[in-house]
Write a protein that binds this DNA or RNA. Sequence first.
DNA 1: CTGAAAGCGCTTACAG
DNA 2: CTGAAAGCGCTTACAG
Lengths: 371, 371
Amino acid sequence: MAGGSRQSRERATIIDVAAAAGVSRQTVSNVLNNPDRVAADTLTRVHREIDRLGFSPNAAAQQLRRRKASAYGFEVNPSGVGRMGHILDGFLVELTVAAPGHSCHLVTFAPDLANLLDGYDQILATGLVDGFVLGDTRHGDPRPAWLLANNVPFVTFGRIWDDPQMGRWVDVDGRSGMELAVEHLLAQGYTSVAYLGWPDGSPVGDDRRRGWLAGLAGAGLTRAPLAEEAAQDLTAATAAAERLLEHLAPGGAILCASDLLALGALRAVRNHGLEPGEDIGVVGFDDSDVAEALQLTSLRQPLQEAAAEAWRIVQAPGTDLSLTALLAPTLTVRSSTVRSSTGRGTPNPTTTPTPTPSATRPDGIPIPEEQ
Amino acid sequence: MAGGSRQSRERATIIDVAAAAGVSRQTVSNVLNNPDRVAADTLTRVHREIDRLGFSPNAAAQQLRRRKASAYGFEVNPSGVGRMGHILDGFLVELTVAAPGHSCHLVTFAPDLANLLDGYDQILATGLVDGFVLGDTRHGDPRPAWLLANNVPFVTFGRIWDDPQMGRWVDVDGRSGMELAVEHLLAQGYTSVAYLGWPDGSPVGDDRRRGWLAGLAGAGLTRAPLAEEAAQDLTAATAAAERLLEHLAPGGAILCASDLLALGALRAVRNHGLEPGEDIGVVGFDDSDVAEALQLTSLRQPLQEAAAEAWRIVQAPGTDLSLTALLAPTLTVRSSTVRSSTGRGTPNPTTTPTPTPSATRPDGIPIPEEQ
DNA sequence: CTGAAAGCGCTTACAG
DNA sequence: CTGAAAGCGCTTACAG
């Protein structure tokens, strides 16, 4: 009445259920948490009242009593420059989808980057979360060691390249993905596979480059591999791809370390009067929106599996450093690696099933009610 | 000892602080929640102990006692097909950044879309959240009416076009954005502004189209406006832009309802042997990664302001339907609307300050430690 | 198999 | 201005 808002109905508590079922409230609690200790008929009777009253245990009361939030923090930050694909947004979605299956939920937070660990300590101090899912790892990242030292459960998405001893990560095997892509390109009839990657020194990039070389070696193509480098920037990528095309004849392909680099490759191919797919195969990495829009074949990270593994690891008791999961990416094949003269009708059994053209390239889809 | 993990240090409670400061625990509580009721010297003494012990009130205990979670649910879903830009991911980030300033936090959840309201009711029933921030609105969306009927605080990002009476929204004024873009294009020296939009019937698209027409009218250009339509699909957009170019001479510009449509326009321009910016101006909407990568001028939604307004509205007491916020987008100017012959050195005062070329187009940025 | 007791950590009126 | 009392809704040993 006094100006405040009022919930339309008060939620039933465990007391209400107990009274309705004619038992004590700890029996209701046992029905929920230790059903094996409760007699069969009591169980059904209590369950009936729970359903009838629409009872759900109050989360705050459970958290307080159990001394456990069953919640994990996820750090979000504005997207970095040139960081196409926003793979972490997809990871966050999959974590959220899988959370109820692990009886927990996700709380987002944005720590002050100048006092990063303070932000972690702060949210931990309130008991709002029990641990953290780290969406990425940085060079010299202080978080894993700090969390470990403080006995805080965590898991990272991305290996901690700095410290091979450090476990508790989920990652995608860029190297095997690149091998898969090389196999695909050769099966499609491309005669050679050049590489467009980042400059040496990036662990992720170096790993992908090794995958490309391993793929070539697997096919016996060890002679004079062709490669160029560019930073994660479209202009630089286009220029680097132009340099590749001085040595790469039609019928060849360019394997790229990212979708943005692949976008540069597509541009360079067109600038040379060639057709992507038909004349020069192009493969990107991350299967971003851009890849979909441009019909670019791209390696896709298995985010759903990654989320499942992340929950498994972060919820594992103790701080076992041997917990890791290395997942293989799949290849989403689009027209940038299809040669109408040779590619059609010869599906490559090692690749992901190719979606039908109408699925990857829907003409006339309904207009989204976007912002 | 018994196989379980153990926090390295037990967190201090209000009791510890009270004992250390030589007061009762309710005085400590008053120091935090009603400092005006506490004597000045007591205040400093208690604060000193709070800092020394690193005390933070336990969130679960507060939630239980206050009967309020100070948390809001945010529904996440896998991105739709063709939905470039992921504007909601940016909105989620800004909400998270602003949350502590509003003494609350965000919990993500992914309801079963087949029983959407059940998912909302479920998370509400546990008391985990007090209300919801809806990231989008759909046609015939059942959520606003349901939330209203159940006295649940909420705010939507996007007007509820179906029901003009329905308030509690934050939205971006696409119409004024389009007017701004037309002004910019004319100031840059383009002689005419054609439109590439979605088919009639989408409220958001229709609003943007009206903005384009209003912009033309404002400049006295009411004769035979040139427009084409395409669904949110690159192939269709390119074809539609090709049709525009049959009637649009160099020196003209194409204003697009989305970055994806603008991508089609860029392609069509190049297919005609023309240079975007130099020969034909192109403007997109949403300032997505793609816009940045392709040097596309684009309208940008003010997500930070939107998040601030969303918190204001969702936390307002009661369910006042008059709470709304319509925000003006800004224009991020890139080379797709720069004519080297005329545009240089004549900045348009109505547009957003143009970032320096080196800021929008960084050559040699560090390689991100991406997944 | 079931219930009485204790308590998680805090806040809210309300005496003094 | 400060403190004793009550209680938010649940779970966890532990008697019976």
